[in-house]
């Protein structure tokens, strides 16, 4: 029913949509790095994203894809992983509480450990607890497509080999969570994509969006 679908203690309106209360926003603010005002601003963004293709209270994968890549079509390795890591309840959609929790990791003030852990989950494509050479290769191939580059297989293998060797402290041919933690702690710039500077300023970024939308 509605309540199993709806997070927190939100109210269901006549259209079977979640109406978040001030208390919901306060709880989410309490659980994350955001203030209540920032959670409210994120709700504006969430409403836009969750109604872009299907007008409900959840972000479907196609809606996330549309927002990130301006097209709902095609297959994207990263999109699949980002979506899965955001979808904590694993019910195939991103709900507002999941959205706020996941974005909190990308806050400039979020602890480094959270960012390290989140990145590991993303790159552990098959969720085996290790980042394996095959997974690194899949990610490199996906990025080469993005840059419209083609590398011969031996060069590709060399990049994969170097990547594993750089981080694989215990020499078992794959990157464990501990390997990863030690490696990115030495090379924090590798986590640059785990921080969204916008989140420090979310209320003004999104109020300018609301203003532009209303102006249209």
């Amino acid at each position: 029913g509605c309540f199993s679908y709806c997070p927190c203690i939100s109210i269901i309106d006549q259209n079977h949509k979640c109406t978040y209360t001030a208390k919901d926003f306060a709880i989410l603010a309490d659980e994350t790095r955001f203030t209540v005002e920032e959670v409210e601003a994120l709700h504006v963004l969430f409403k836009r994203l969750s109604s872009s293709l299907i007008d409900d209270d959840s972000i479907h994968k196609e809606e996330l894809q549309l927002a990130l890549f301006q097209t709902p079509y095609g297959k994207n390795l990263f999109l699949d992983r980002v979506f899965d890591v955001f979808d904590q309840k694993r019910n195939g959609v991103i709900e507002f509480d999941e959205f706020v929790h996941a974005l909190s990791v990308f806050h400039p003030y979020a602890p480094m450990d959270e960012k390290i852990d989140f990145a590991f989950k993303l790159y552990d494509l098959r969720q085996t607890g290790f980042i394996e050479p095959e997974e690194v290769k899949l990610m490199v191939v996906a990025i080469l497509i993005e840059f419209d580059m083609n590398l011969p297989d031996d060069l590709l293998e060399a990049i994969v080999h170097k990547t594993i060797a750089d981080a694989d402290k215990d020499n078992d041919g794959k990157i464990s969570r501990e390997d990863w933690k030690a490696f990115v702690s030495r090379n924090p710039s590798l986590l640059i994509n785990m921080t969204l500077p916008y989140l420090k300023d979310i209320t003004s970024v999104l109020s300018s969006f609301v203003f532009k939308t209303e102006a249209k």
């Binding site: 990610m139 990025i143 994969v160 170097k162 994509n193």
Partner: peptide, 25 residues
């Protein structure tokens, strides 16, 4: 020299792996 490159450097700078677009409009 791409061989001297660590794949995670590429990934961290990749556009397809950047959530900033969520805030673009």
């Amino acid at each position: 020299k791409p061989v001297s490159m660590n794949a995670f450097e590429l990934i961290s700078r990749s556009q397809s792996f950047n959530l900033e677009n969520l805030f673009e409009k």
